[in-house]
Nucleic acid binder design. Structure first.
Lengths: 271, 271
DNA sequence: AATCGTCGTTCCGGAAGTCGGAACGGCTTG
DNA sequence: CAAGCCGTTCCGACTTCCGGAACGACGATT
C-alpha cells in the first residue's frame, strides 16, 4: 500500500520537465508517458499542469503518442496507456530469455516451499519482478504497486547488488530509505550484509520493506568473461515465521537449487 | 512460425518515415521503437537505414529513448527494448481491470475443456492476447509471434467485430488475407459469418490461421448505454478434432458460461 | 432549461530545437 | 598492421516546435 517515488526523476520541487539531452520534444514525450504511471486517465490540461508546459504542447504530445499507439483515447477526450506498450513490454522481457526458462523451476519451487516465488531483475536502483508464482490460495495476479521494490530493502536486490560495485554505489548514493523499523539504513551495515551475501550465496530480508513479510533470494547467474555474473534473482517471499523460522534451511536450499538450475538452463538457452 | 506484417504501417516501398501529425521528432521516435519489434538489438546505422534518416538523427533518437528508459544499451553500443516498457505495458493491461477478473474463470475453463484458453482484446484490426492459460502439459509461455492475430481469421476477432460496424469496415478495408486454404477471404461470406456469430453468441474458426488448429470464442461484454458491448473475447484453441469434433457443444457451453461469468464480474469490478 | 465553467483542439508568429553531412575515436576484421 | 565499420559529436541552415489566445463542445450547476 506504500506508494513509492520510483521513477529516477531529479525533480526540483514542482515537476519541471528536465532536459539532459537533445531532442527536447522526445524527452517531454517520455515525460508525458511518465505521467500515466500514477494516473490511469489524463487529459491535456492535467498533463500540462504536471509538466509545466503549455496546454497546446501537451495536446500535441498526447495526439502524437496516440497516433503512435503508445496512448489510447478514452471516449471523453482523455488518454490512457496503449496496449502497444504491452506488446513492447512483453518483447522486452521475452528477449531476456529468462521468463520461459525460469517458469518451470519456479512452479516446482512453489510446490516445494508453498510460498510465493518471484523472479526479479535489476532496473536502476530498483528490483523489477517480471514473473511471479503465487502461493496456492492467493490466486490474485500481483499488483502494480508490488511489481517494483527498492533494491536495498529486498533480498532479491541484495543478491543482484552483491556482485555489482557500481550498483552498490548507486544504491548508497540514492540513500537507504527506511520502510519499516527493520530496514537496514546504515551504509556500513548494508555493505556488511552484501559481503555476507557474497559469501553464503544467498540473501535474506527480514520485514525490511513490509511488516510481517520476509524473503530469501538466490542469484541467477550467467558466465560472462569466465566469471559468473548475476542477471536475475529468484526469491521466496512469505510471512516471516514461515520463511525465516524452522523451515529456513529448506527454503534456502530450495531457492539455491532452483536458481542454479535456471542458471544452467539459461546458459544453455543463450549458448 | 508465420511472420506477419502486423504493425499498421502505410509503408511506401522503402520504409520512409511517415508523418501524419505534427511533432515530427516524436513520430520518428515512435518509428524507432517500432524497429525493435522485429529485431532484438539494433544500432544507429541500421535504424537510420530502415527509417531513411541520417545516422546522426538515429543516434540522437536512440540516446533520447534510452535516457527515458524506453530503450537500454547493450554493452556493444547497440540498443534493445527497455524494461520500463514492461512496466508501462503491465499498467496498460492492469487498468483494463480485465486480466485479474478473468484469470480464475480461465483456469476453471482450462480444467473443464483441457485446452488452451486465451483472453484477447481488439487492437486496430488485430486481436491481442493479454492472457493465456496453457493446456496442461504445454508449460511454455506463449510466444511473441502468437500474441497477436489478424482479426478476420480468428474466432476471438469475430466475436469482437460482430458488434462493431466500424471494426468490420476496417477489417474489410485492410483485406482478408489468406493464411490457410480454409481462411475465409470473401467479404460477403465474412459478413455472413459475423451475422451467424451475432445470432448464436459465439464464433468459430476452423484452421483459418494455422493448419490443424481451430478455436471457439465467446464475447466478454460490458453494459454501456443500456446495450451490452463486447470489450474482450475468451477463446478455446486446440486441434480441430478436439474443439470442433464431438466435444464442440461442451466447449461452446463452457466458453459461453465462462465469458458470461467474467462479464458479470467485470461489471461488478468497474461498477 | 439556460448559463457558466472547464476541457480539448486549433491557429499563428517568433524562436529555439533539430536535421543532415562530415569528422573523430574505438573496435573488429582481413 | 591497416582498413573498414560503427557509434558519437560538432556545426550551420533550416524546419519545426513552443506558447498564448481564440474556438467549439461537453457537463455541471442553479
Amino acid at each position: 500500500m506504500t506508494v513509492l517515488s520510483l521513477p529516477p526523476l531529479d525533480l526540483d520541487a514542482g515537476g519541471a520537465p528536465e532536459d539532459d539531452s537533445p531532442l527536447r520534444s522526445v524527452s517531454t514525450a517520455v515525460s508525458v508517458l511518465d505521467c500515466f504511471a500514477d494516473e490511469a486517465e489524463l487529459g491535456a490540461t492535467r498533463v500540462a499542469a504536471r509538466l509545466g508546459i503549455a496546454k497546446s504542447t501537451a495536446c500535441r504530445m498526447l495526439a502524437a503518442l496516440a497516433t503512435g499507439g503508445l496512448l489510447e483515447r478514452t471516449g471523453s477526450g482523455r488518454y490512457r496507456l496503449g496496449l502497444r506498450l504491452f506488446e513492447y513490454g512483453q518483447l522486452a522481457v521475452d528477449r531476456l530469455m529468462l521468463r520461459d526458462v525460469a517458469l518451470p523451476a519456479m512452479g516446482e519451487l512453489r510446490e516445494l516451499v508453498r510460498e510465493t516465488i518471484q523472479l526479479g531483475v535489476s532496473v536502476g536502483t530498483d528490483v523489477l519482478y517480471v514473473e511471479r508464482a503465487e502461493a496456492a490460495g492467493m490466486n490474485v495476479r500481483f499488483r502494480s504497486e508490488h511489481r517494483r521494490n527498492p533494491a536495498h530493502s529486498s533480498s532479491a536486490g541484495r543478491v543482484l547488488a552483491a556482485a555489482d560495485p557500481a550498483l552498490i554505489t548507486a544504491i548508497l548514493e540514492r540513500g537507504l530509505q527506511r520502510y519499516t523499523p527493520f530496514t537496514v539504513v546504515d551504509p556500513l551495515r548494508y555493505r556488511q550484509i552484501l559481503a555476507i551475501t557474497r559469501d553464503q550465496g544467498y540473501a535474506t530480508s527480514r520485514e525490511e520493506f513490509e511488516p510481517g513479510w520476509s524473503s530469501i533470494a538466490a542469484p541467477i547467474t550467467l558466465t560472462r568473461g569466465g566469471r559468473p555474473h548475476p542477471v536475475a534473482a529468484l526469491s521466496v517471499v512469505g510471512p516471516t515465521s514461515r520463511v525465516l523460522g524452522p523451515r529456513k534451511p529448506a527454503v534456502v536450499q530450495g531457492v539455491r537449487r532452483a536458481a542454479a538450475r535456471i542458471s544452467a538452463d539459461l546458459e544453455r538457452a543463450r549458448g
